[in-house]
Each structure stands twice: as structure tokens, then as C-alpha cells.
Design a protein around this nucleic acid. Structure first.
Lengths: 176, 176
DNA sequence: GTAATGGCTATGAAAATCATATTTACAAAA
DNA sequence: TTTTGTAAATATGATTTTCATAGCCATTAC
């Protein structure tokens, strides 16, 4: 429906990959999942997407085997989303994209949004594929990230603004 | 005009990067530039995009500082496109995307589209960020790629089909 | 019984994309 | 000198996507 697999007819792995993730919203959803957010609302709030954008992307990602949708509550019925092995395997791409974004899409005074520490050596991991401190290849499970104060604040504000917008029914609707 | 910089208001480097490259066509154009194709027609043929898609993406990429448009012939006036330093710096993302695409978006019997050799050690480089043979970090300038026979054929066919389609004016138009 | 929470779906306007044809500018061939 | 060919696009009109906004449904909390 949404993406009719345009590149099934090519052997190029980049084109194949782009068929699944060649879309701003999909990548932002993946970012949220990697950041540990598993719920529809939180993903919507932090990506800034419309409910349809998030819903269609999550459905497509489930169909593509990137994401698993599971019921975490029976009544009321509630779902959450988690990365599959295939989805987890996308992490190096996100890391590389993050490194490029930090180095080439931001001014110096904006600072690093998330600083990773390499837990196996305890030193800052830096932006490359190898730990800046110990030189080992960075694996997701060995990293612990800490958001900068301003970035954390930005995310809190987005969540609050989202909740406020939904809670408000707009004065006119309520019998004005 | 095309992308009004939606994420200038976030510190997230992934969102910032996606503002520039969060688009199938942009990534495919980058792929072609990394493969050494610098001309409009060849990029159009190999990405399968319409002329507008390619033209708008190249213009946006030039505006974003990813690509440099230079005149390579005065009369007739002809242009070519090359990566800037910022564009070249995107290579790790393409490599990571390629690795993921090869491992998760293809069946085993399709085979690897491009095999890289690490020139500093002479051994096959593999799919990771480090050389499979010698363990060093892979840099673009140390890699030489060789396309598989089927992938090379696919690309030749695309180029031929593109040329044929353009040369043909369709029989009706010619006074049939 | 009114609101809040969570996960969506519906609607209509606005924008992007697609396929196809055409343009511009020059060179070489018929 | 008219046609053919090449390179780099632009124009057009139909189709598809996306966006902003609103609404739905089933619970639990007050």
C-alpha cells in the first residue's frame, strides 16, 4: 500500500535497504526505538509525526520484519513496539548517521546531543565506529548514553507539549 | 522549496542528517556519486528517477553543501557533479547501509553486489567497518570494489535501456 | 459522569511524485 | 540545411502522499 517495493528488481543492497528505511519518519521511529521508547504516543510525540505517519510506518516496519508489535496490557488493550534482530542490526547505520549529523549538520556551540560511554572500558566512546578511549569496536550493548541538559530539556518539552495538546479539547468544543 | 528544513528546531543529529538525506532519491544519487558517476544522465539512468527527481535532489544537495556542480565543457555547456568534503564524509553511512542491505534485505543466492578489496593489505574487506583480513578501519580511499557479473550486467542493461528509450521518438510521432 | 490515557482512524486541503513530452544548445552527419 | 544525436534539464497534468485537525473507542481514575 504505502511502498510497493520499488527496488525488488535490483541487486544493489543500498537500494534494497532504502526500500525499507528510505524515509525520514521510518528513521526517526527507529531512533526512538533505539532510545528505548516503545509506545505509540511517545514515538509520536518525539518524532513530531502525525498519528497516521507513525501508524503507517510502524505497520510497514512490522511487515518488513524490523519491529514486533506486542500486547503489554489486556484490558484496556495496549500495544508496544520493539525492535527485532533485523531492526537491532540497523544500529550501525544510526550510529554512522548520528556521527555525520553531529559533525556536519550542527554548529560547534550546539554541542553533542548524546554522549556515549563505553562500558567495557569506562571511557567516552566518541563518534566513530571504534571507542575513542580503548579502540575496540563499539557494540550497542556496551554503550550507555547520556543526553545533554539542553537535549533532555528539548525532549521533555516535546512530551509535555504533546500531552497538553491532546488533553485540551479546545474551548469552543466545550459549550462556549 | 522541496524540503523546508523541518528539524532545524531539534538538537538530534539523526533528525538533522535526515533533513538532508532522509529521502530515497538523495541516497541513490549519493550512491552513484560514490560509484564514480558524475553526469546527470548516468545518475538518472542508474537511479531510475525522473529528470525532475534527479534535478531537484542535485540542486538541494548543492544547496546543502553535499555536492559541487562544475562545468566540464564550455560549448556546449555541460555540467558534472562531484562530492564535497561533507558529501565524502557520508561514506560510512553508505557503507553501513550497504552492509545491512546485503545481510538483511537479500536472499543468500543473490550474492554480494560489490566486493571490496582492502588495498593496504590486499585482502577482501568484508561488510563491517573493519577489514575482515587485517582488522584495520576501512577508509574509502583504501578500498577498490569489484561488481559481481550479474550486478554489472544489471547496470549495463539499465544504461542501455535508458539510452534506447531516449533515442526512440516513438513511431507515431515520425509520420507513420 | 466527566476527564484522562493510549492507540489509533477519518477527513479534506495542500504538496509531492509520476509518466510523458518538450526545450535548449550545440555538434556531426545526410 | 534539415535531420540526428547528446547532455542537461523544464513543463504538464493526473495520481499519490502528506499534513493538520478532529474524532473514536475502551478502559480506569476521580
Amino acid at each position: 500500500m504505502s511502498s510497493p517495493r520499488k527496488s525488488a528488481d535490483t541487486l544493489c543492497p543500498v537500494a534494497r535497504a532504502e526500500d525499507l528505511v528510505g524515509d525520514r519518519w521510518t528513521v526517526l521511529v527507529l531512533r526512538e526505538l533505539f532510545m528505548g521508547n516503545r509506545r505509540f504516543d511517545e514515538i509520536q510525540a518525539q518524532t513530531g509525526g502525525t498519528p497516521q505517519m507513525v501508524a503507517t510506518r510502524l505497520k510497514q516496519m512490522e511487515a518488513d520484519g524490523l519491529v514486533l508489535r506486542t500486547r503489554y496490557n489486556e484490558r484496556p488493550v495496549r500495544y508496544e513496539y520493539q525492535l527485532t534482530v533485523k531492526g537491532e542490526a540497523f544500529y550501525p547505520v544510526i550510529l554512522a548517521l548520528r556521527a555525520w549529523g553531529e559533525q556536519w549538520c550542527k554548529s560547534a556551540e550546539e554541542g553533542i546531543a548524546v554522549r556515549f560511554t563505553h562500558r567495557t572500558c569506562g571511557l567516552p566512546a566518541g563518534l566513530g565506529p571504534l571507542c575513542e578511549g580503548c579502540g575496540e569496536v563499539l557494540r550497542r550493548e556496551d554503550l550507555s548514553g547520556e543526553q545533554s541538559a539542553t537535549y533532555a530539556e528539548e525532549r521533555n518539552e516535546r512530551r509535555d507539549a504533546f500531552r497538553a495538546a491532546r488533553g485540551t479539547v479546545s474551548p469552543e468544543q466545550r459549550g462556549g
